[in-house]
């Protein structure tokens, strides 16, 4: 009898919020920077003097020993220097990696929070829309049912009224009503 109310489709829920994955990594180097062949190359200084073949004299032996002591001391000092440098740089690298990963964690957590908040707000919007549409549909349904009831009432009245119209008493009542209505209309009721 009456057109159905216009539909307002509710969009589907967005995909689930991606969680905090935890796959953090850092590209900062933490390995010993000077290692292997480099250490070998710079910590193996040869003695600057070696006793010549057949040189068994005390002077040659003493000088040779002095040169060996010199190169040994230099090599040990160099190795210590390299080790200290490596350790220092590795410590700094470790600190830098920890800071880097911690910042990534912080940012990831903030983004996770943002996504959660957005998902909550989207759910609120969908809920508010669904509730509002349900309220509107109920009101419209009530209005339509009331109108249908009134129409049925009118149909019943029409039927019973028409049947009584053909009886003498009914005709009299109808004439009386019409006259009353006309009189009332003329009097500006």
């Amino acid at each position: 009898m009456f057109p159905k109310p216009k539909k307002f489709p509710i969009k589907k829920a967005p995909p689930a919020t991606p969680g905090l994955t935890g796959n953090f990594s850092s590209s900062i180097p933490t390995a010993a920077p000077l290692a292997g062949s480099q250490v070998q190359q710079f910590s193996t200084m040869k003695p600057v003097f070696t006793a010549p073949s057949g040189g068994t004299g005390a002077a040659d032996q003493t000088r040779s020993a002095f040169a060996r002591a010199l190169s040994d001391s230099a090599n040990t000092a160099t190795q210590g220097d390299i080790e200290g440098f490596n350790l220092g740089l590795q410590r700094k690298g470790q600190d830098a990696v920890a800071r880097d990963v911690q910042q990534q964690r912080q940012i990831g957590t903030d983004r996770f929070g943002m996504n959660r908040q957005a998902a909550t707000m989207r759910a609120d919007i969908r809920n508010r829309r669904a509730q509002g549409m349900a309220d509107i549909a109920t009101k419209l349904s009530i209005g339509r049912k009331n109108a249908d009831a009134a129409a049925l009432d009118n149909a019943v009245n029409f039927t019973t009224g028409a049947m009584s119209l053909f009886s003498p008493a009914g005709a009299f009542m109808t004439g009386t009503r019409a006259a009353t209505g006309l009189l009332g209309g003329l009097m500006g009721r």
């Binding site: 009456f2 057109p3 109310p5 509107i136 419209l140 009530i142 209005g143 339509r144 009331n146 109108a147």
Partner: peptide
């Protein structure tokens, strides 16, 4: 909806 209810 109000308009349609009123119309009915």
């Amino acid at each position: 909806a109000e308009e349609r209810s009123a119309e009915m």
